[in-house]
């Protein structure tokens, strides 16, 4: 029963996407009308300079925003996990989590107002540009990175770090040789999340971007308001193919290495109590 609904849910998620892929190869000018096989929309995509510029800008902003978000999110997550109680801790926690739940229109409007006032009184940042979009995306991404980093630090505990310190490592050495390698999966996941959030954002980029800085989603959104085009189908097909290859590669590598992904919840229920004790308490089923 639940597996049937899982299949139906997958069908619901995939049906519009698969239809897009099929009709990306249609010769018809109308979307979702079959006019014979053709690659004309892929050719149109390759010739569309505006779209390519927007895509390049989006990838650049996403990379910069994700890098900044990873750095800042690491600091915020570290403070949340390791600084215990300090004056202002409740406010710090609320502000760290706020971007996760604030409606996008509110965040976008607030950041734009802030940038306008700053430009007026401090002379910086000059106008709406890729830089203001990058800052807006980094502010959102940092909140996600902080959650992942905090969770990872909490689950790691301090045993390994304490051991290294007992053996004479200074705080910088402990961080570099113990903490950072242990955090690496969390930082990679956080970076990927911040990158994808930035690449997919319409609202923040509409508010904080200007005529000189139009990201790919903003451009697609404004075109879509005028009507759907098969060119969008061709773009979706290319992105899907690229992402499917990357995803399958990651899963295959992860499957070869350990059988589990750091990004996904563990397959086994948590072991209660210490492992050895628990294993001894459990009846052995292998013999039967």
């Amino acid at each position: 029963m639940s597996r049937l609904i899982l299949a139906l849910g997958l069908l619901f998620l995939w049906a519009p996407v698969l239809l897009m892929v099929v009709f990306a190869f249609s010769d018809a000018r109308q979307p979702f009308v079959w006019g014979g096989f053709s690659l004309r929309w892929f050719a149109a995509l390759a010739a569309n300079q505006r779209l390519q510029e927007a895509a390049l800008l989006s990838v650049g902003i996403a990379a910069g925003a994700a890098a900044l978000a990873t750095l800042v999110g690491l600091a915020i997550g570290w403070v949340l996990a390791r600084h215990g109680r300090f004056a202002g801790r409740p406010a710090f926690g609320v502000l760290a989590a706020a971007p996760l739940v604030l409606p996008e229109v509110v965040t976008g409007l607030g950041l734009l107002f802030l940038f306008v006032l700053m430009e007026r009184h401090l002379g910086w940042p000059e106008g709406r540009s890729a830089l203001t979009i990058l800052l807006a995306h980094a502010s959102l991404g940092a909140a996600y990175v902080a959650v992942v980093v905090q969770a990872r630090l909490a689950s790691l505990g301090r045993v390994l770090e304490d051991a290294a310190a007992d053996l004479g490592a200074g705080p910088a050495t402990v961080f570099r040789t113990i903490t950072l390698p242990l955090l690496a999966p969390a930082l990679a996941a956080g970076f990927a999340l911040a990158f994808l959030l930035s690449l997919d954002d319409v609202v923040l980029a509409s508010f904080t971007g200007g005529p000189g800085a139009t990201t790919l989603p903003v451009l697609l959104f404004s075109q879509l308001r005028l009507g759907p085009t098969p060119e969008a189908h061709a773009l979706a097909t290319l992105m899907l193919a690229a992402l499917a290859l990357i995803g399958a590669g990651v899963l295959w590598l992860a499957g070869r290495r350990s059988g589990a992904l750091p990004l996904l919840p563990a397959d086994d229920p948590p072991q209660h109590g210490r492992y050895t004790g628990d294993a001894m308490l459990r009846p052995t089923c292998d013999a039967s």
């Binding site: 009709f23 189908h233 979706a236 995803g247």
Partner: peptide
Amino acid sequence: PARLRPWVVGLILLPFAIGFVLRMAAWVGL
């Protein structure tokens, strides 16, 4: 089966990865 789960989760995530605007473009056309 546990072995299949990451792949099915990937299958769930993939339509989201092409981006929100393009998914909406599909619905507008449909």
